[in-house]
Amino acid sequence: MIYVHKIASVTPQKELLPASIDEVNESVNNVLKVVEPKYEGVPLSILRRMGKAVRMGVGAALPLINTLEFPLNGIVIGTANGGMEDCIKFLNQVIEFEEGTLTPTNFVQSTPNAIAAQLSLLSANNGYNITHVNRGLAFENALLDVWMLLKENKTHTYLLGGVEEISSYNYNIDYLADWFKKDEVSNKAMFASETEGTLSGEGSAMFIVNAFPEKAIAKIDALHLMHTDDVTEIERQLQHFFNQHLEDGQSIDVLVSGENGDIRSRHFFEASERLLKDATIVRFKHLTGDFATASALALTITCQLIQSNVLPDHMVKIDRHKKNINKVLIYNQHKGIQHSFILVSKPAA
């Protein structure tokens, strides 16, 4: 059991959940880039030296750590690529200067563990420190790690996070590999799109988590991750997941669906909806775009939905008129082979 106590995020939207569609920032050339705040918790001299992924991660997390009332026992981050802009800058130097004399700054910042490492350094934290990078299940493995840590150490508190940046690297590479749309589609119309590919996004989501229910904003009941391209397998495992984790009489109020406007993945999301005939179906990727750790932002959004008990209209695909948002299932998939279910509920008052 994981209790979420604090959340912070950096997303392509000014507010995590814009109240109306008019307030939703629109994608530019099929890309949704983050709106970065001033990051007031981080010294400017340090911020200036950071690449975007490290800045988004550290900028969101450090204020959470610095205002913590209890000690932090470790830092667990999921990111498929970390600071790839720095990586590509260094790579370009290697090729363009034919392996000549190069400066190490970009190299040091390019390693995916730079976000967790910088956070430990800036918060003088000697605890557990790890970075999970298994692409579309990087954040889920970070979540699973924290789940195990809290079973091993029931009084501990951890920082959990997921971060991804759009860089020339991952945008070009994923574009050439046909993961992004070739036709121009606005994020506000992405779910109606009948073409292959999704919209590129980025963001940072940070959580303070422990096993204490008092004053928690959300409770993570269960998590399941899968590697398959078989839709019947997804259905079978989702049914099994419900049998395992929903008690008699319990049902899902809201499905937070990772639907991403790519017709090649639509059948996965339709399968999850078939098993949730009584749940309100909401979508979020028109706010964030799609990326390997988008499920981290899905969790932030879910926490916010549970806390506010309000669903903005632009997110709702099918409204089953739920009075209260008590139990939420997040279903996400990445590139058709990596899938996850995260069950989140409102903590008992």
Partner: peptide
């Protein structure tokens, strides 16, 4: 190119259905 690509390929190649993960701590 990504670090996850090694494990993701092996998981598919060998048909491993359990939990798959890749860790990077330099």
């Amino acid at each position: 190119y990504d670090i996850g690509s090694v494990n993701i390929y092996m998981q598919k190649h060998y048909g491993i259905k359990g939990i798959g993960n890749t860790i990077n701590t330099a």
